[in-house]
């Protein structure tokens, strides 16, 4: 079940990235392609098999996990900026790109790296499960490290959430409001992941469901915008499209 969710998310994200290649060639909103490509890579790294393979190439000391965190930061940074700009949410942009956003990114990144360095990270293990199991200090560090990794995406999502909620109630076309709703669900789910340490071990599968559902919501929400944009393009500019 969880495996299926993971691979579905990977395929959806990969397909979304591939579908952006024509626009990449046309130099239109290229950062979306890069963000989706990063996201796809991040999902790949979060799945057991690929993680172990890639981490082995990087020395088997879980550097891949640190890499994964920064890939997620990058992907979510560019994606959220685009989304906020698209929905005309200047406050959201300010919160992400302004001083507060940069401070949050810097601080969280520092905590992340410091925790990683202090840990005994030998022995590849997706999600650092085995690393945490080594001793009590490691377990604590993994906990902080994980929290830091979730904190920045949560901050960014909370920054764009008000804009999404406004868009849902706005008189925009139905398809766009639907995608705003999906993006809003994603932006709520990711901050929820900060509560993961409180989830009882028996319900650990909830973590996966929240994480991957959030990503799926983002990817599908964005894809809906392209569907709507394609339709609108056909409706408003039929001639240029047929000339080619």
């Amino acid at each position: 079940m969880i495996e299926m969710l993971q691979w579905t998310t990977l395929i959806a994200s990969g397909a979304a990235a591939l579908s952006r290649i024509p626009n990449l060639v046309r130099r239109k909103n290229r950062s979306i392609f890069y963000a989706l490509a990063l996201l796809t890579l991040a999902i790949l790294l979060s799945i057991d098999g690929p993680y172990l393979a890639i981490d082995a190439l990087l020395g088997g000391a879980n550097v891949a996990n640190l890499l994964l965190r920064f890939i997620i930061f990058g992907a979510i940074f560019f994606l959220a900026l685009r989304i906020a700009a698209g929905f005309g949410d200047s406050r959201g942009i300010q919160l992400i790109r302004g001083r507060t956003g940069m401070l949050a990114l810097g601080l969280i990144s520092t905590v992340l790296v410091v925790c990683f360095v202090l840990m005994d990270t030998s022995g590849s293990s997706a999600g650092l499960v085995h690393v945490a199991a080594k001793n009590q200090q490691n377990a604590l560090l993994v906990e902080y490290y994980g929290a830091a990794g979730r904190a920045y995406p949560a901050y960014v999502c909370l920054a764009i959430l008000p804009g999404m909620l406004r868009a849902i109630r706005s008189p925009l076309p139905a398809l766009l409001r639907m995608s705003a709703a999906l993006l809003a669900v994603g932006s709520i789910a990711i901050p929820l992941s900060l509560l993961f340490p409180l989830v009882p071990p028996g319900l650990g599968f909830l973590r996966f469901i929240v994480n991957y559902t959030a990503i799926l919501c983002f990817v599908v929400g964005l894809a809906l915008i392209w569907v709507a944009s394609g339709r609108a393009g056909r409706k408003h500019r039929p001639l240029p499209a047929e000339r080619h």
Binding site: I83, G86, P171, L172, P173, I225, W226, S229
Partner: peptide, 18 residues
């Protein structure tokens, strides 16, 4: 005016996310 405003908003979305 409202339609024009909505239209502009939609176009901003296409421009940034389309």
């Amino acid at each position: 005016r409202r339609q024009e405003h909505d239209q502009r908003q939609t176009e901003t979305i296409w421009e940034n996310l389309g």
